[in-house]
Amino acid sequence: MSLIDSISLPRSFRLPRLDGLVQWIVPIAIIALWQVASVTGVVPVRVLPAPSDVALAGWKLLLSGELVRNIWVSFWRASIGFLIGGSIGFAFGLANGLSQLSAKLTDTTLQMVRNVPHLALIPLVILWFGIDESAKLFLVALGVFFPIYLNTLHGIRTVDPQLIEMGRIYGMSDGELFRRVIFPGALPSIFVGIRFALGIMWLTLIVAETIAASSGLGYMAMQAREFMLIDVVVLSILIYALLGKLADSTSRVLERATLSWHPAFQKR
């Protein structure tokens, strides 16, 4: 065992770097192909501008400060909405996972609300909040709530009852049982919820900003469409992709840091 450990240690330093390169091969190849197709005229510039043009548009917007401002606004909305919706979802997940009474009281209601597509509420939300910040935050929070609620609940419900019995035999108090057994046991499932929620977070925010906003990435894309600035539209879409990737990577880093005990995270 100690021999295997000593071998795998240097390898674990090399692998992530190699992995880091491998995962970017396909996106870079696509961009290169796209550039070639644009320059040779296979893809008309009116349909899809060349990556170089998109980069140029990005550079101009960066210099004017507009890009950073819009990204920042969207990022802020996404994070605050995520925190609000995520905390409420987590709290309900905990309460309904730990208490039968709470589950009986609220679960049916929540399941009904869950089946309403939250984007269908946009007209109502605009009537309620106008095109204010609160409208976007409300929608993001609502979208993020359900995956986190469901997965937290599932995680807590599926903690091995034999481990809970073991904890009780060894004299753990309720708090200790939660901290040492139930929460760590539910954590893998909670992370699944977080990663789902991050996807929904961007989707909701961009749709909301496209329909009703005066700042943010979605607004920037809609404005560009009005003025036929196709390079800015494509730029916005690429930024969504990058931000989504960033959010996913962050949750992965957190996952690895907290789930290092899990066999699935020990191989790398």
Binding site: Q162, L163, M166, G167, I169, Y170, G171, M172, V181, P184
Partner: peptide
């Protein structure tokens, strides 16, 4: 103390802290 057919170790705790669980209070 009871020992079961299944080890019932906490998968998220290292071996030593699993043993410490047995100390109770």
């Amino acid at each position: 103390r009871v020992m079961f057919q299944e080890p019932r170790l906490l998968p998220w705790a290292r071996v030593l802290s699993n043993v410490e669980v047995g100390l109770g209070r």
